[in-house]
Amino acid sequence: MVIGDVIVTLFLAGGLFFTLVGSIGLLRFPDFYTRLHATGKCDTLGTGLILTGVIIYHLFHYSGTPLVPVRLAFLVFFIFIANPAATHALMKAGYEVGVKPWKLGDERR
């Protein structure tokens, strides 16, 4: 069982790193459009990696119900399609309303 625990810990650590980087980017970046860059990419992969680690944990410890990892895989697939679409919808709404993009040398907004 030790090799399974090591793989699950690796996936969870990677997922947590990307999730934290996404939140730090939300605080550090100076503009609405650049904050969407940070969260739309890092949050998706971070949550996807955490859920993949949990799938592997379920395959090792609860081998009685093999259909649950299939439904978790569907959840990962749904997140990979839905999060970029929501990011794109928010960015388009911001552009149509008229939020000005940030150029190098402006102050933070």
Binding site: L26, F32, T39, L51, I79, N83, A86, L90, A93
Partner: peptide, 17 residues
């Protein structure tokens, strides 16, 4: 309001995990 909407979406995605 746009920055707040982005933050709420991010909190929702983290709640799933």
């Amino acid at each position: 309001v746009f920055n707040r909407t982005v933050a709420v979406n991010v909190i929702g995605t983290k709640t799933i995990g």
